[in-house]
Nucleic acid binder design. Structure first.
Lengths: 199, 199, 199, 199
DNA sequence: TATGAATGAGTTTTCATTCAT
DNA sequence: AATGAATGAAAACTCATTCAT
């Protein structure tokens, strides 16, 4: 069984990111990943239960770091507005910083089967709860409108960030993604803010 | 070659929706689709060039109707706000009305390969341009803020609607999707509206 | 069943020669032949039992004419030598005159299955017996050596002519085939002639 | 890719000869060959790029041995006549000795497509050049007539041997092929020999 | 731990032939 | 006689996973 966390564990995950980004999900055979990682095919199975497990682990590892970075940045925020701002900034910044990873998470991993995608969604839940807690606090502190539906608001944040990033990846990462955080943040904030004059 | 548009053309497309929704993208063999459509395997190839062509045609046909319905509804709108409202309503309403189709477009077809997904994106472009023209008109008539970036706003609309619908599908369509149009519309509108007091 | 010999019968056979020469044996679908002949697919089956029957008939018709021409030319010959000479000349001349047919008989039809090739051999028998009768007469009139084995001599004639023609076809009929009849005839004649001094 | 030359490489080639001889070219499925060779279907593809590659390799391997044997026998020849005699003898002897192989090369492999047949012709070239060098030396040493055309003479040798062997195979190898080498050799030699009295 | 040769299940597509009109 | 839409059987090849060394 998978004796996780040798030095090769990380080698294999990084090789998977590289190979999937280069060849696409359906052309990322285990043997290619093994070769890129510099190990034998069989060795993969000492660290991962099966191919799906590589991809899930890849997502868990990378997403774990991703969320940790966001969370620690949020600690620095003094206001709800800043929390939302930092989240948007960090989301785009981190994906802009690792284009291979962006290609893999935004395009390639979505070609995976239903089962894998449900596991991915579970991993995402932690991130989504970070978003929801910002919404809740925003409403509690009367910065956001009470009319805002927590779950829908979270879906708007995630859906927008995801769509913005996917478009950037599909345009071959040719423009600056990070600089979009300010206008994206502005629109989201306006969408949630307390409205003086809602009919 | 594909002599499109007999009565069987539609039979096959509808069979494809049913089979993909029931079995998932990767378990939707041509022979299953043929059986569901009540034709022989080979007959499929009188109407479609290959399996990929079935899926592209499916998307084109259904998306065509989808956008047409939205467009004609938009004609009835008297204000920009109503246009955005009708678009959100019709988007959710139509997907709520055909759950099989929703499963196929939100989940299954995204497992397709890069090439098919790029064709899908081309088909989507027309819909996206409908969204962008609402943004443009909103800004031109000073209902929306000049600070709003057309493309980002469009990505927010689409990303939000897509995420909302995907979540609904992944929860097995258990709750009422259509009733979400009002709060979703509210958040989006707030996000774009002219702001009295932007810092 | 095949009501042979309408005007379309010949149209179809000629279409078959054209299509096979242009596309190769394995790319010569019945529907292509029908289209070239200007008839519907189903019409083919009013004149031929099946696809194989087209090819056999093609060979029979063309080979019949081929042998008839040779036979009538042989009537003009005054000596055994001339008979052999005329046979070689006519063989090469006729194939040189219809390159499509040469491609079909020398290359494409040989890709057919064992059964068809055996039928072709039966059709060839008549031609082969013409060759053998020349050998026999040559030996009877003491022009050819008694040591010559009838069947082997016939195989040498046919094998040589066939190989010479096949090489010409495989070189895209780029050189003059007919002019080879003199040297080919010379070699064959020498091979059979009475030898003054056989060791 | 084809990591040629394990013990299984030869097993598979021999299995292919057996299966093709028994079932015919078009009934020689990869799975049958694999079963006969005692390996899994997939194993075939560790040694051969595709099915065509099996057949090409089969021909190359067997033809290589075939020509090598002839060449080394020719070294023992003291005269041009003996060279021609040995070539004829060895050609017929080797095919007579492996009837399966004879069936495959004389009948079945000729049903292959144009591309494969052209590869086969390339492999044959080496053998044909052996024949041509005999012709050339025969003319140089004034044993053969200067009137003999090198290429045509080679075509006569090959065409004759090929036709003789094919007839034998089509008669189910029922008679003795090897014993035909003497009369065949005699006719060929006469065909090429210096003629005292050529008109 | 590590290797890598071997396994074998699974699916799209073509095309000769039919038959209702 | 003529049509042409519909039929349905049949086979090469890939690649995740195993296991003897």
């Amino acid at each position: 069984m998978a004796t996780k966390k040798g030095p090769k564990y990380d080698q294999i995950i990084d090789a998977a990111v590289t190979i999937i980004a280069q060849n696409g999900y359906h052309q990322a055979q285990v043997s290619k990943i093994a070769k890129e990682a510099g190990v034998a095919d069989g060795t993969i199975y000492l660290y991962f239960k099966n191919k799906e497990d590589i991809l899930i682990s890849l997502f868990e590892e990378k997403m774990g770091t991703f969320v940790d970075h966001i969370r620690s940045k949020l600690m620095e925020a003094n206001t709800i507005e800043e929390q939302l701002q930092f989240l948007v900034e960090m989301h785009l910044k981190q994906l802009a910083a690792d284009k291979n990873l962006a290609v893999v998470t935004q395009l390639e991993l979505r070609q995976s089967n239903y089962k894998l995608r449900q596991r991915i969604n579970e991993v995402l839940k932690e991130y989504l709860s970070v978003m929801e807690s910002i919404i809740e606090k925003g409403k509690a502190s009367n910065v956001f409108s009470q009319d805002v539906n927590d779950k829908l608001a979270r879906q708007m944040i995630f859906g927008t960030l995801d769509e913005v990033t996917t478009n950037w990846v599909m345009k071959d990462c040719k423009y600056d993604l990070e600089s979009l955080s300010k206008p994206v943040f502005d629109m989201l904030l306006q969408g949630f803010k307390l409205r003086e004059d809602v009919s």
